[in-house]
């Protein structure tokens, strides 16, 4: 593992989308982080069911949480993007029940639980931010359950593409309808819970319909409105609109 500077990079863009944090709060978190390390692609950050004494924040690259069945079948119930905490659930329970693995080469910062506990005990705003982060994860998890349980493969894939675009845009990693897309078809099939064959067909349908195209490791969304409609996508569950437009339902509730 190659060490580099301990900045929290996109994490300090991600958190302010959820709550108002002062520069001092963000600096406090950055100071608490250990040196970031580079982790090779397809490497476990935390094996399934392992204990942990730190939060792992992905600064660069894509990772995932996964669950395996004894016969090797896998589901990826969460994609961890730059600025995301890979193992938030481990903060209180010190064990992560899903595995956490890199998908691409990642740069990962660690926030030791003990240090973070001291910070949240002193700072209600940071505690609030972590609580909100947990709530967003629950909200996303519920949405993914809806996708897996009730949507067609085409709808799931459209929904996923819309979600990834919104999440990556929020940390400055996507714009103009284009986003980095480093997932293999095998990984993608485990994200939307279909076979690789069915994923190939579904991807082909979306391409043929002129909704998206894949160019190397980038995805281009050609018709965001139709894609969102196909995927029944409404970004509300991502809670990216802390300071959203006045007519946004979230803004009304907060007022």
């Amino acid at each position: 593992m190659k060490h580099s500077s301990p900045k929290l990079g996109p994490f300090t863009k991600r958190l302010p989308t959820l709550t108002s944090l002062s520069d001092k709060d963000l600096a406090t978190l950055a100071q608490a982080a250990d040196r970031a390390v580079d982790v090779a692609a397809l490497t476990d950050i935390i094996p399934e069911g392992a204990g942990t004494d730190s939060l792992h924040v992905v600064l660069e690259g894509w990772a995932c949480r996964y669950k395996l069945l004894p016969d090797g079948r896998r589901l990826i119930p969460a994609l961890v993007l730059p600025g995301d905490v890979a193992d938030l659930g481990g903060f209180l329970f010190r064990v992560v029940h899903s595995g956490v693995s890199t998908l691409t080469r990642c740069r990962v910062a660690t926030l030791p639980h003990a240090r973070l506990r001291g910070i949240v005990d002193r700072s209600p705003t940071i505690r609030d931010a972590l609580w909100r982060l947990t709530s967003v994860e629950t909200s996303m998890s519920t949405q993914w359950t809806l996708c897996l349980g009730r949507m067609s493969a085409e709808e799931r894939l459209a929904h996923l593409f819309c979600e990834l675009y919104e999440r990556l845009s929020a940390v400055g990693h996507a714009e103009g309808g284009r986003l980095p897309f480093p997932l293999t078809q095998e990984v993608l099939s485990d994200v939307i819970g279909v076979s690789v064959v069915h994923l190939s067909r579904t991807l082909n349908e979306l391409r043929s319909a002129g909704l998206v195209s894949l160019e190397g490791r980038r995805l281009a969304i050609h018709d965001p409105a139709r894609l969102a409609s196909l995927g029944n996508f409404d970004r509300g569950y991502l809670h990216l609109d802390l300071k959203g437009p006045p007519d946004h339902p979230q803004a009304k509730t907060a007022a």
């Binding site: 078809q185 076979s195 690789v196 064959v197 190939s200 067909r201 991807l203 082909n204």
Partner: peptide
């Protein structure tokens, strides 16, 4: 179909 890549020609 060509988009099946390495699975092309196989049975599913």
């Amino acid at each position: 179909a060509a988009f099946y890549n390495e699975d092309r020609g196989h049975w599913y």
